[in-house]
Design a protein around this nucleic acid. Structure first.
Lengths: 242, 242
DNA sequence: CCTGCCCACGTAGGCTGCTCACAAAAATGC
DNA sequence: GCATTTTTGTGAGCAGCCTACGTGGGCAGG
């Protein structure tokens, strides 16, 4: 008999569908699955060692999130990345994160925030540059989501989590925010200081400024990457995406 | 042979899974599926005349949207409605709709907007009170989404569409916004007037004021409904939802 | 009569094997 | 060499089956 799936779940109670969903999602965000490419069900079944039913459920969820698009009888297209995407994601972040930060005043765990900021600064000389960026992006995401979680609005937190993931994907494509870290650190520390004071207006202002700084950096890197590689980043998709 | 599913699609190209998803979603939003209740797969298969595979895909999507929760080996629980939900949804609307309105200045079709506002005012004496409200909510949703669609930010539009649906569900539970229509009409017309002028700041202000007005009305109705029916609306769920 | 245990049932979730409609590619006919 | 037909591969759906497990009712022991 097949003994490979007898009460697997090594440590966490994770269904096969959820597991596949998260793994594929991670690969899309890290651009291991290149934007714009088309993958087929059989290929994915083999790559992720999962059966059709679970795969289809995972793909449906990803399609709803906008990471995928089902092209009937052709395959599934990984969502392409356009400059408009960058603009949209950062516009929403700039509108929602200051709100979350303001609501989190007096509720966020400052010690944890300081730890997470420090985690953004950790250097792993062993890792390659690309992985190093992944580590930074994860730590950065954790820093911002800690604030979003403390704001008390679950929907706001959930929306921001999705935006952070999309942003990570954009950054993963235009690899390289390494030189930007000092400025990020300054921004993060300014936010922490404002939280310490409990000054909601200053918290909000610093949050907004930070998003705008990061957006400018990301756009700069993306344009540079665009100039290098030629037309790697489509300005607009062929049809109306979504 | 089975001839019941040979090129169905009476008028639109709609897959069985999408169809089931939309029908169940509509029933959740209209509270025909009561918040908090638990339904089982076999019951849903029979009720919507759909097979297990398609149903599971539809339910997974709904669960990701937060309309459902999978309770393994017990069934699927329709998301309960709490006062916190009302607060969260309107907080996000109040933050995002003014932004969408501002971005839509000079891009929104004013004639279409006037038509949609008029649609909010249409009276259907034939319909029952509850259906009458549904018609109003749909027209109101169309009005606001027309603005969101014109803002040029697809993610913002998508997020607002989801929030409008959640809001419709809250209203459907605390049935009755009928007395509030004149004030809504005034607000809508003020927004249209601001769009005509092209005054972004006034558009934004009117949008924010409108959301706040509507939130106050909804909360009032919900509290009244709460007082009437006793503890129909749980203030907080037993466990952490989502 | 009460109490605690145990097993059958119903459930979500997963897998396999099939069918169908359709589009693109390949093979075939002229 | 071009048009037509056939083949292939795809997403999508359905049906039957299995597994793990929580729940509740019946049953035995006190």
């Amino acid at each position: 008999m097949d003994t490979s799936r007898i009460t697997v779940n090594e440590d966490a109670a994770l269904s096969s569908g959820d597991d596949a969903y998260q793994r594929i999602r991670r690969d899309i965000i890290s651009c291991r699955l290149s934007p714009g490419t088309i993958v087929t069900e059989p290929a994915l079944m083999a790559a992720y060692d999962i059966r059709k039913t679970s795969l289809r459920i995972a793909l449906t969820r990803l399609a709803q999130e906008g990471f995928l698009r089902s092209r009937p009888r052709k395959g599934y297209q990984i969502a392409p990345i356009t400059l408009r995407d960058v603009e949209e994601v950062f516009t929403l972040r700039a509108q929602l994160e200051p709100l979350a930060a303001r609501l989190a005043v007096g509720r966020v765990d400052l010690d944890r925030l300081r730890d997470l900021e420090a985690a953004c600064r950790v250097q792993h000389p062993v890792l390659q540059l690309n992985d190093q960026i992944d580590v930074f992006m994860d730590a950065n995401k954790a820093f911002h989501l800690a604030i979003a979680a403390a704001c008390g609005n679950a929907r706001l937190h959930h929306t921001l989590a999705g935006l952070m993931d999309e942003m990570s994907r954009l950054v993963a494509l235009g690899f390289g925010v390494q030189k930007t870290k000092p400025e990020i650190k300054h921004n993060h520390n300014a936010m922490i200081a404002a939280f310490e004071e409990g000054d909601a207006r200053r918290v909000e202002l610093n949050a907004r400024r930070h998003i705008e700084t990061f957006q400018a950096m990301t756009l700069e890197k993306l344009y540079a990457s665009l100039a290098e590689t030629g037309a790697a980043i489509p300005v607009a998709g062929p049809g109306s995406w979504r």
